[in-house]
Design a binder for these strands. Sequence first.
DNA 1: AATACAGACAACCGCATAATT
DNA 2: CAATTATGCGGTTGTCTGTAT
Length: 198
Amino acid sequence: MDKRLCNSQYAEVRKGPWTMEEDLILMNYIANHGEGVWNSLARSAGLKRTGKSCRLRWLNYLRPDVRRGNITPEEQLLIMELHAKWGNRWSKIAKHLPGRTDNEIKNYWRTRIQKHIKQAENMNRLSSNISEHNNDQQASTSQASTGPADTIETYSGNNNNIMATTFHQSTTFPTETNENIWSMEDLWSMQLLNDATN
DNA sequence: AATACAGACAACCGCATAATT
DNA sequence: CAATTATGCGGTTGTCTGTAT
């Protein structure tokens, strides 16, 4: 490829959050030409984005079968189960959760589950310290629980056995917060409108 | 009311691997 | 078969929003 061309043509590569307009262009283009060959797709569609960026946006957000909203308790359980089995193989895990993306699961793991594991480890350490200290007094149940509503009730102390972890209900599943983003229904209906006029 | 902080999520980056030339 | 390019994955960072002070 001609590097001089690259310099002039690709000097302005957009980064950061996608605009509604960009989303529409991408959706429209994929609806007409299909996905794949992302670099040339980005160019042909007239998007000042890298192919990588387009692919990511499509897979994680724009694809019609992406399921948005809260992770259900069943999904959470499945994630924990599969993570215990495979570790950080997010895309592999995502394949078992229809409509969920690897990115979403990864974020969910890092922001929610990992936090609880850390808390549990701390509590575990604390409790083992206490039991060491109170060597003779078995079953000293007066752990100095700092008691946030979302602390873990039980934990095996083993990262590979997170399944033993249970959460208070108040912890999990915040309500959906999509207000800052145009709804996918809007985008798709606009895309369809666009399509009809072409 | 202002602002500092934390949590959630979207997006980027670097690397490994697959596909193509 | 080597070099180049495209794709996919996982880690990390950036941005936005809600909450506490």
